[in-house]
Design a protein around this nucleic acid. Sequence first.
DNA 1: TACTATTTAATTTTT
DNA 2: TTAAATAGTA
Length: 723
Amino acid sequence: MDVTPILDGLNDAQRQAVTAPSEPALVIAGAGSGKTRVLVHRAAWLIDVEGVSPQGLLAVTFTNKAAAEMRGRIEALLKVPVQHLWIGTFHGLAHRMLRRHWREAGLPQSFQIIDSDDQLRLIKRLFKSQEIDDKLWAPKEIQWFINGQKDEGLRPQHIDDGGDPNLRQKIELYRSYEEICQRGGLVDFAELLLRAHEVLRDNAELLEHYRRRFQHLLVDEFQDTNAIQYAWLRLLAGSKGVPFVVGDDDQSIYGWRGARVEHIEQFQKDFPGTHVVKLEQNYRSTGTILNAANAVISNNGSRMGKNLWTDGAVGESIKLYSAYNERDEADFIVGRLRDWSAQGNARADAALLYRSNAQSRVLEEGLINARIPYRVYGGLRFFERAEIKDALAYLRLASNRDDDSSFERVVNKPTRGIGARTVEIMRAYARANACSMWRAAGAVASDELNGRAANAVAAFMTLIERMAREIDGLELHDKVDHVIHLSALIDFFKKDKGEKGETRIENLAELVSAAKSFEPDPAGEMSPLDEFLAHAALEAGEGQAGAWEDCVQLMTMHSAKGLEFPLVFICGMEDGLFPHQRSVADAQGLEEERRLCYVGITRAMRSLYITHAEQRRLHGMDSFSQPSRFIAEIPDEHIEEIRPRVQVARPMRSPGVTGRRGPVPSSGNELGIRLGQQVRHKKFGDGVILNCEGQGAHARVEVNFEGAGTKWLVLSYANLDLM
DNA sequence: TACTATTTAATTTTT
DNA sequence: TTAAATAGTA
């Protein structure tokens, strides 16, 4: 067997990982060290060299994008389409299992997946029906609680209330929430994982079947696994399965949503004799950028320890710009982007990274004014749009009448005279009789409601029945199209003023074409419609359109993970913003912020700019902030300060504060302003410069005048004469 | 029911 | 500042 194509171009460490014996392996893969490459080649190695059947392989990722990429690359490497190869996200694979084994899982065959928006609505309704004061708890808090418990693998009965009445009520809400979901055949994201775990745990035969089938488990981004995901993997691996997990403890930035880096340690305990391979050679960034990243992350305590290196160029130094305020920061970035384009570079090769989404606004304004095309990542995705979800709700209701979530969503959309009052009556009935809203509607319409409301409800039910009847047997896209028309959603959105309604109608048309191009799994047991609905929930689709244009990329550092750009700006590097105020309280939070910083820095291939503003408008208030402590963690020799046109010297650090570094003081500059400089002012007379701050037109100096005392003056207005 | 005024709070996000 | 949620009004 010629193994050349599989091992060609791999470095020693990569090769060691790819060709590891069929035993548990842990690959610690630094940023840009060829992590996906190793996974892909490992899969190819197992299939081509070890003779493992493609069906014996399970590959798990966190995002659909990563799953698609892995599948594509494996197929490209093996030069054959690998059907039957289970590659997917944790949620996608769990879903697949639940569809196959819905009976064992205790679910209706046509169960539907709800996204977090649906989930929150459901909880809000639960609050109303139980008359819970939402001042006491925000619905979000309960959502957080429920998901958190599920992520840990806990059902209500597993949670000890410890005599805390508060906690007890939360558990009670969790229980009621579960009941509603069960009754409606609704499964939220966390539930997919939890049920998939339970169905294997509680069915010896099933477990045996899957254990026999999946001898090799490949896991990507292992540091991001939460408790239930890890438990599922361990269960599946059993004592004979061979897990091959790849991750980077230094890039663990999702602790706040249940991810546990500790699983890396745990893995080595659970699978004694694990082969550990470290990938430290980086193929992405310059030496300077890597040194900076290494230096920053070395300030973290709990690490496995790893040092990125490259045999490539040292590269240019990291540029640091201290802006006067957030607008100045944006202006500076715009200027640099202009230069970048002028040098013939693609805008899409430049990325603006920030800690929180709110920061994008000022940057966007700057880009708009400069007419630089840009694209903001994040935000609403296609299948999350309200109008799309409305149309899907009709389809879901046609497919499963007991889906309360969808029922409530469209019962009065467009308005058909079923107001809050009527819905309330139905809710009460549903609750009292432990039935779905649909059944409640039927019962209530025939006796409890007055004529008008009863008619409206009956008409709604007739409409849904009619939809279900008429779309039966149609092609998927015709079903979608038909439902959109019958629902009269288009007319409803036409009434929306402005472009909004227009866009919504366009999106509905887009939904039909999405259905048209949707390819159902020929071997799938689900109906194409159910499959389409599941697809809509599990893959929310692209965010903004316009990806084809050559755009500057704007995103948070979280969403930049896994990406790389020749030119990167990390904006808003200020204490309080990054590290974020809410994370600095405990060491754990701060370390996660530092890892985020590490992620940010390692996105850059050639050029990295770090900017911070001395003054920033936040929540409508101007506030002053210090440069991020992370800046001070980058060795000086890698940093070059960019100075604005009008320059002043500035005190370097507040004495005694641990290594906080502002811009380096200069002994002088083209204006000749420096500390201790003698100056003369028209009105105040002679004085000495004590202090300086700010840059550009906003630069200010503190002067101690012999007669007039100390004053802060704006340089550009003060007209100081140097003595 | 729909529109308007007021209040409140303010990371990070994929599935 | 602003977005969202709620309360109040026509």
